[in-house]
């Protein structure tokens, strides 16, 4: 039985999640992992070298349509590889990432095979794959069986593997191949867009006072600013705060914002969705204030305060000020 791992890369480097995927894959099929690299002409070899020793085999496709990410091209290529393979993969694994959210469901549509996205754990029982998913804002967990199909697809939440990735410690064979894609894919990459750099780099701060949707409004950011000022901290936030234009994008912690690892992270009114948590869970000390005792943030926080941030934060500000004299 073989498992394929779709390698995610950007600007000539493999993204961290690819290594996690290889380890996930290895655990599922006891080593027989095929790494699939879809890359632009001339890019493949360097990427393949990074895989060496971590998969049994690397399937390498270089095609002009892969020079930049194109979910349609990727799904078409994977479909044709999988359908044409001598030994078709039992499972195709990818990352639940911006790219994975695009190509994976499209591929599932093309192959008409069972698929789950955003799995936090996978297990193989006999012939079928079971995925664990976190649902309802992190409050419940569900197990989904991808029953008896020939082939299944799963994308995995980055950072969800608890163990260190196991290296397969094998010599990886590289198999270059090609796919024929239609000349007109219906969509075209135009340009990368980089967030304009702001004047504050939250990833450099020692202490972050981070606000979430619980802050309710732009005017209330003052509450966090006062605490930050007293502590000599920087204010950061979760995504909805940026979506509503209460703080600039440069302050956003999370997968689509910045990854931070301060000495202290104080979360005010943040529920702790994985897209946020992944990017701050390695902070040395996490203190969370939330009025919902069941908020997932309390799972990763070291200290939790169940209460109204509008009471707790000003009290803490006052205490810090008093302590500093």
């Amino acid at each position: 039985m073989s498992v394929w791992v779709v390698c995610e890369h950007r600007n000539g480097a493999l993204r961290e999640v690819t290594y996690e995927l290889l380890a996930h894959g290895a655990a599922l099929c006891m080593g027989a992992v095929t790494a699939v690299i879809l890359a632009g002409p001339g890019e493949g070899e360097a990427l393949a070298a990074l895989i060496n020793g971590k998969a049994e085999r690397t399937l390498l496709v270089e095609d002009p349509s892969m020079s930049a990410f194109n979910g349609t091209a990727q799904a078409l290529a994977l479909a044709s590889l999988a359908e044409g393979a001598q030994e078709p993969p039992k499972a195709i694994l990818g990352a639940h990432s911006a790219a994975g959210m695009d190509w994976a469901p499209t591929l599932a549509g093309k192959l008409s095979c069972p698929a789950v996205t955003d799995a936090v754990a996978l297990s193989m029982e006999g012939d079928s794959l079971t995925a664990t998913r976190v649902v309802y804002g992190g409050k419940l967990q569900s197990k989904i069986k991808l029953g008896g199909a020939k082939m299944v697809i799963a994308t995995i939440r980055p950072g969800s593997l608890e163990d260190e990735p196991k290296a397969a410690s094998v010599e990886t064979s590289i198999e270059a191949t090609s796919v024929s894609l239609p000349s007109e894919l219906g969509k075209r990459f135009i340009a990368w867009v980089e967030e304009a750099a702001g004047d504050v780099d939250i990833s450099q701060a020692d202490i972050l006072v981070s606000v979430g949707r619980g802050i309710q409004d732009k005017e209330n950011i003052d509450v966090a600013e006062a605490l930050a000022e007293a502590l000599g901290a920087t204010v950061s936030c979760s995504r909805p705060v940026v979506d509503m234009n209460w703080l600039p994008k440069e302050r956003q912690v999370g997968i689509s914002g910045k990854t931070v690892k301060p000495k202290v992270y104080i979360a005010l009114g943040i529920s702790g969705a994985f897209q946020h948590a992944t990017a701050m869970k390695d902070s040395a000390m996490i203190i969370a204030v939330n009025k919902d005792p069941k908020a997932p943030i309390f799972q990763i926080a070291h200290y939790g305060i169940v209460g109204d941030l509008f009471k707790v934060a000003p009290a803490l500000t006052a205490a810090v000020r008093a302590a500093k004299g």
Binding site: S142, Q299, A301, H302
Partner: peptide
């Protein structure tokens, strides 16, 4: 594609979790 079966829905296993601080603000 629709061959997905929900086996279970349950509260997530709780890790150690946070130490809760209690009292007035």
């Amino acid at each position: 594609g629709g061959k997905l079966v929900v086996e279970s829905l349950q509260a997530p296993p709780l890790g150690e979790g946070a130490e809760f601080l209690e009292g007035s603000p």
